[in-house]
Design a protein around this nucleic acid. Structure first.
Lengths: 157, 157
DNA sequence: CATAACATTGTAAAAATATACAGTATTATA
DNA sequence: TATAATACTGTATATTTTTACAATGTTATG
């Protein structure tokens, strides 16, 4: 099942490109290997609460508005996290999160946007994320901070 | 000239109602006495940078996003000004601007962001704005500075 | 005044977007 | 296992939105 990976790509595409129509989005998705119909894309956009607004230069622009997604965001971020999460390990002071294939960027995005104060940032590959803890944060403190922000989080499944 | 008044109403309608389609907006505008075609409405929405966004409850919603209109160009700021502006008067060294109901904050925002050097700042109520001129700036100088930055500005309508 | 440039609008049509419906697959439940 | 409930999708269509074009009016300019 590819839907959540597709949604993650879609979000990234919209956040990093100026796209004026669903047809154009369809092509960009295609470039990443996702072949769907316009109908499905329309549904995906609705799911992500992506809006279409005039760009002030005579055209239109699809936008992923954080504010539109703010309400209840922690909840859906935690869901994003759990959807892809497999397990966590440590290497030196860094945490290594394993995810389902292609889910790394979505999970990392969720971590970033939960704004956990013990975490400085993340780096995501395809199924692996590096979490960079703030200076002096111990492994157990990091685990605890994740537990406190992601209901049902456990160290390993 | 009805257009700017219509745009003001349109904006207020959108800010205070949950509207799902242009047809619905058309009816609300009608209720206020503005009879236009859907084509004109579409153009108006483009002008105001009003977007259509999924509401998270299965429907869609027209939204006037401040952020979309934030980095307003001088041109659109001047338009905001003129859309709400009624007249200007003086009290002591301060200028008192009257606006359409509820337009004070928009007009004041426009004045602030035009960064007129003769103006220190503004205070806005609901339909009234106080402009605080810089020390030593005379009434006529203030008027002149407004004229120079807001095409078509006149002291009273 | 005449003419040009610009602004606003409706009509009609094109283009873009949303969705009803049906089909498939997956998961849950008796 | 059989049945029901849920999730996801494509097809075809309906709905919605945008725009080309022409008409009208307004403002600027010679």
């Amino acid at each position: 099942m590819d839907r959540s990976a597709r949604l993650a790509s879609l979000r990234r595409i919209i956040e990093t490109n100026k796209v004026a129509s669903q047809d154009m989005l369809l092509k960009l998705l295609q470039d990443e290997g996702y072949i769907v119909t316009q109908a499905t894309l329309s549904r995906d956009l609705k799911h992500l609460k992506v809006g279409k607004i005039p760009d002030g230069k005579g055209g239109y622009l699809y936008t992923y508005s954080d504010s539109a997604n703010k309400g209840g965001s922690d909840k859906s971020l935690a869901e994003d996290f759990k959807r892809g999460y497999i397990g966590i390990d440590f290497s030196g002071n860094m945490a290594v999160v394993k995810t389902l294939p292609r889910h790394a960027s979505t999970v990392a995005f969720a971590i970033d946007n939960l704004h956990i104060k013990e975490i400085v940032g993340t780096v995501a590959g395809d199924d692996t994320i590096l979490i960079l803890p703030k200076d002096g944060v111990k492994r157990q403190e990091l685990i605890h901070s994740l537990k406190s922000r992601i209901p049902g989080f456990t160290e390993n499944l």
